[in-house]
Design a protein around this nucleic acid. Structure first.
Lengths: 122, 122
DNA sequence: CGCCTTATCAACTAACTGGTTGACAACTGT
DNA sequence: ACAGTTGTCAACCAGTTAGTTGATAAGGCG
């Protein structure tokens, strides 16, 4: 898996089971066994999911006797929101500019010229 | 592909090429050919990526002669941020509560016995 | 009309994923 | 020291994915 962290985080969250694990870890740390209990899959399968999450940096594991309590590294979630917000905002701004241009074009073609950059239409 | 939209969106964004396509579409609509040009892969490969993005609802395509201009549906990005924010906030609140509890425990008694944590803490 | 451009479809391949089972490592507790 | 608990590793399998090439559809243009 030679991939950037952002890709690993998105990929990790693309699986419903793993999203569910994240949701449960948001409520508190838990051991692998406890996390696996509600699912109809082997503990090994859940262990693999946890590995994907840890490789993405979303989860860390400590040690408590035989147990490996899992802990959600919530700040890593921000990597994705930061990326997304950047482009969502960019697209939004572009729409506003486009709307302004359209409004401008309409006002000039229909009547006397108006000043630039009238407010954006919603 | 029998999967919920949230999974499809996360999976779509898990690929660096597709994230790059999204980034470029955030700056304006573009045809498949124009999108493919900068990459060292076939147009077909990019067309497939676009299909993944459209299946996730992130991109829509119209028709202009032979061309299929792609348009970013930026609001779909919010699906992911909404999901993430929910759990990031939940985890954050839990930390605040935990901090409060710890502060309380420290101020009242120094010899608090720690019980084993088998399942999820609530 | 034929030809070129643009994009998708179809079939194939190599790599990856998510699951399984079995072995075993790490540690507890009597 | 030994049995039991907890979790990971290894090997395997079936399904998916990201790429390829070749064929074809859809439409403008000389």
């Amino acid at each position: 898996m030679v991939q950037d962290q952002l890709s690993r985080v998105f990929a990790a969250l693309a699986d419903p089971t793993r999203r569910d694990l994240v949701a449960r870890l948001a409520q508190g740390d838990a051991t692998v066994g406890a996390l696996a209990a509600p699912y109809d899959v082997s503990v090994q399968a859940v262990s693999k999911h946890i590995k994907v999450l840890t490789d993405a940096g979303l989860v860390s594991q400590t040690r408590d006797a035989q147990r490996r309590p899992c802990h959600l590294e919530a700040q890593v979630l921000d990597l994705t929101t930061k990326w997304i917000e950047r482009y969502r905002r960019q697209a939004e701004e572009r729409y506003e500019r486009l709307d302004a241009v359209l409004a401008e074009a309409q006002s000039t073609s229909q009547s006397t010229r108006r000043t630039r950059n009238q407010g954006a239409v919603s």
